[in-house]
Design a protein around this nucleic acid. Structure first.
Lengths: 109, 109
DNA sequence: ACTAGTACATAGTAACACTGAATAGTGGCG
DNA sequence: CGCCACTATTCAGTGTTACTATGTACTAGT
C-alpha cells in the first residue's frame, strides 16, 4: 500500500471499522476481507485485530464468541452506545476535514 | 484538540500544507496562523515546523530566507515539481478515502 | 501426512502530531 | 532600563497508530 494511504488511515481506519459495525456485528477476519474487497488492497490482518482489541478495551464494542464451522471460534464485535457516540463524533470530525479540504482543492486551481 | 482530530490529521496535514503552498509560497508562522483561522483550533506550532522540515528533506519544496521586519528571518517555502506531483498523489488517495467513507455513511443509515 | 483456508494474536518498527521548552529579534509601556 | 507582547524558528521527548512478520489453532480435502 502507498505510504500516504498508510498515514492517512491513521485515525480513519478506526472510524471505518466502527461504521462497519454500526451496520451489523462482525468479526475480524470478516472485516479484513470486506476491506480488501472494497479496495483497501492489503490492509494487514494484524492491523484489524489490534484495532478491534483497542476499541474493545476502550469500551466502544461488545464481544461475543461464536463457534466457527471451520477454524477457531469467531470473536463477534457489536457497536454499543458508547461506540455509537464515538462514531458520531468521528463523522463530525471527518465532515470538518472534508469541508476544509474541499475549499483548499477549489482554491488551489 | 480532540484526539480523533489529532489522529486523523496524520498524513492529511502534510497534504493540507502542500495544498497551501501550491497556491503561493509561505513560511511556517504564516501557515500556522492560517490553519488556526480556518478552525484547526490549536495545531501546535512545532507540528508545522517539523512537517516543513520533513517535506524539505524529501525534496518536495524549495526554501528561501527573507528578513522579517519583526523578529528572526522567515524561511519561505515554495512547492517544486516533485512536491506538485506528491500533492496530486495526495488528492488521489484522499478522493479514494472520501468515496469509500461516503458509501459507508450512506449504508450506515 | 500435507496443504489450504479459516480465525486470532503479538512483538518489534516506522511515521507522525503533540507537549513543552528554548532561542532570537523587534517594539511599546511604565 | 527592565519587562512584556508579538513575531519566528527549533528540538528533545512522548503517545498513538498501522505495518511487518511471525506464531498458534482448528477444519476439510487430497
Amino acid at each position: 500500500m502507498g505510504k500516504q494511504m498508510t498515514e492517512m488511515l491513521k485515525g480513519t481506519l478506526e472510524g471505518i471499522v466502527l461504521a462497519i459495525l454500526s451496520v451489523r456485528p462482525a468479526y475480524g477476519y470478516e472485516i479484513t476481507a470486506w476491506l480488501r474487497e472494497k479496495g483497501f488492497s492489503d490492509i494487514a490482518e494484524g492491523t484489524v485485530y489490534a484495532l478491534l482489541i483497542r476499541v474493545e478495551q476502550r469500551g466502544l464494542v461488545d464481544v461475543e464468541k461464536f463457534p466457527s464451522e471451520k477454524g477457531p471460534p469467531r470473536k463477534v464485535y457489536s457497536l454499543n452506545a458508547q461506540g455509537q457516540e464515538c462514531l458520531e463524533e468521528f463523522w463530525r470530525t471527518w465532515s470538518f476535514l472534508t469541508k476544509q479540504l474541499e475549499q483548499l482543492r477549489e482554491g488551489g486551481r
